[in-house]
Design a protein around this nucleic acid. Structure first.
Length: 465
RNA sequence: GCCCUCAUCGUCUAGCGGUCUAGGACACCGGCCUUUCACGCCGGCGGCUGGGGUUCGAAUCCCCAUGAGGGCGCCA
């Protein structure tokens, strides 16, 4: 049974790199009929927060990454929060064992110089004595001479000279295990078979392997996948425009598109628009690109647009509602007329790439009186505007069958008959009806608005100018 | 400074010794469509980091250099 874990530390939001790692972990587990496990690595008591854990869990779920075992759903190998594992004393026996076989020692630090070790001992009584006298004490793993060699699924044979490492602190002076120790114990106890994580962990691996060996444990398979960088090849950061999953969600990216893009980053495919969750069988860890990839915001937007146009309309509605609930200032009562809303979204989604822009496009359709842009007001100042609106109103109200074709024919006919330039006429109408210079097609828009709304809006604007 | 990793258009990638005058996608530029903006369609620009080998033959294999990224915490 393949068992893979994603092990974030709750010290911030979920980063796109983390999301991608989690996605690959998930895909690999599922492809092999294995389990995907979420473990919270909160041994940093200073920086870990519950809020952060919630937001990470929330973002993971938004991506569609669900876990078989984890802090909220439980599982055979729990608890799945390291802080709770500390409380249960899970790590202690292994610390004791390493000390008893003299592979780890208590390090006593100078009271003034916290960096300076004044004594090393294998006796816990002695360590306790020093602690009582106010010294900081850690447990350190002894690095032996020699080489640590392992096989990385992405990098191949990895060889490290142990002399490049200092002894490894495995228990902090506050009694908490350190990362390098806790992962080993937990991955072993949780029967993790494959450790797939970011490349930033590559040089931690030999340290962890030394601990595995000292404890006499079998190694999992390791694989380190490259990191995601910003457009200038520096690590992706806020100054590039946003790095968290929640940032993209609020920006109006759908989770389908987001996960699609993440998967594409490093996973070469002919068909670029796809649902990674449906292509599990095609996924191969070994084929993931070895080089760090640069996060391309514009391609993400393009992919999102493709999804918006391809997905069933009711799914667009669902996605939109979820987005608007958090991001739209106005209440969503205007979406209650489902039939009307669907029509609006159908014509709007053809021209937008994000839910946010979809909102901006569709909003004027739902207002009593749409707000007018500055440019729109100028167009209405045009001397022929009153005439245009009057004729349009008169003719449209007389239109029997309200169809796109009829609307178009009528309006074109007017323009021709009255000798008004189409460009001018159409812009005046567009702006009068929707308050914006950029909208979906004019005739579709009029059709979707319906006769009553159209006439009403024209009347209102005519009174105003 | 030391250790590790990586290297094809601006970006993501295909390529795994001859089929490469290097293919696709995004972006960019031009055209078509056209009522705005998009979508869509057509076309263009643009790349094997450099130097040595190996080989009849190298984007593909080896070495070196360079560049980029990571690590060297009682952070994870």
């Amino acid at each position: 049974m393949i068992r893979v874990r994603f092990a974030p530390s709750p010290t911030g939001y979920l980063h796109v790199g983390g999301a991608r790692t989690a996605l690959f972990d998930w895909l690999f587990a599922k492809k092999n009929g294995g389990k995907f496990i979420l473990r919270i690595e909160d041994t940093d008591t200073e920086r870990s927060t519950k809020e952060s854990e919630h937001s990470i869990v929330n973002d993971l779920k938004w991506c569609g990454l669900t876990w078989d075992e984890g802090p909220d759903v439980g599982g055979e190998y729990g608890p799945y929060r390291q802080s709770e594992r500390v409380e249960k004393g899970i790590y202690q026996p292994y610390v004791d064992k390493l000390v008893s076989i003299q592979r780890a020692y208590y390090a006593i630090y100078d009271k003034e110089d916290m960096k300076k070790i004044v004594k090393k001992t294998f006796s816990s009584q002695e360590a306790t004595l020093y602690k009582e006298k106010g010294h900081s004490v850690t447990v350190n793993f002894m690095v032996e001479e020699g080489k640590t060699i392992f096989h990385d699924l992405a990098k191949g044979k990895m060889e490290f000279d142990n002399s490049t490492f200092d002894d490894i602190v495995i228990v902090k002076s506050n009694g908490y295990p350190t990362y390098n120790f806790a992962v080993v114990v937990d991955d072993h106890l949780m029967k993790i078979t494959h450790v797939v994580r970011g490349e930033d962990h590559l040089t931690n691996t030999p340290k962890q392997i030394m601990i595995y060996k000292a404890l006499g444990w079998k190694l999992p398979v390791f694989m380190h996948i490259p990191l995601i960088l910003g457009p200038d090849k520096s690590p992706l950061s806020k100054r590039h425009g946003g790095t968290s999953v929640s940032y993209f969600r609020n920006y109006g990216i759908t989770s389908k598109a987001f996960v699609n893009y993440l998967a594409l980053l490093g996973w070469g495919r002919k068909e670029e628009i796809f649902d990674p969750f449906k292509e599990i069988k095609e996924f191969e860890l070994e084929k993931i690109s070895k080089k760090p990839s640069i996060f391309d915001y514009s391609k993400l937007e393009w992919i999102n647009g493709q999804h918006l146009r391809k997905m069933p309309l009711d799914e667009v509605m669902e996605e939109f509602k979820k987005w608007a609930l958090i991001n739209a200032k106005e209440s969503l009562s205007w979406l209650e007329d489902e039939e009307y809303a669907q029509k609006v979204f159908e014509i709007c989604r053809q021209k937008v790439n994000t839910l946010k822009v979809l909102y901006e496009f569709s909003y004027p359709f739902f207002c009593e009186e749409p707000p007018f842009e500055e440019k729109a007001r100028e167009i209405l100042k045009n001397e022929c505007a009153p005439k245009c609106l009057g004729i349009a109103k008169e003719n449209l109200s007389k239109l029997d069958e309200w169809s796109i074709e009829n609307i178009e024919d009528k309006i074109r006919e007017i323009a021709l008959r009255e000798d008004i330039s189409k460009k001018k006429f159409f812009q005046v109408l567009r702006v009068a009806l929707l308050g914006k210079t950029v909208t979906p097609g004019l005739f579709e828009s009029i059709y979707v608005l319906g006769k009553a709304r159209t006439i009403q809006r024209l009347s209102i604007v005519m009174k105003r100018i």
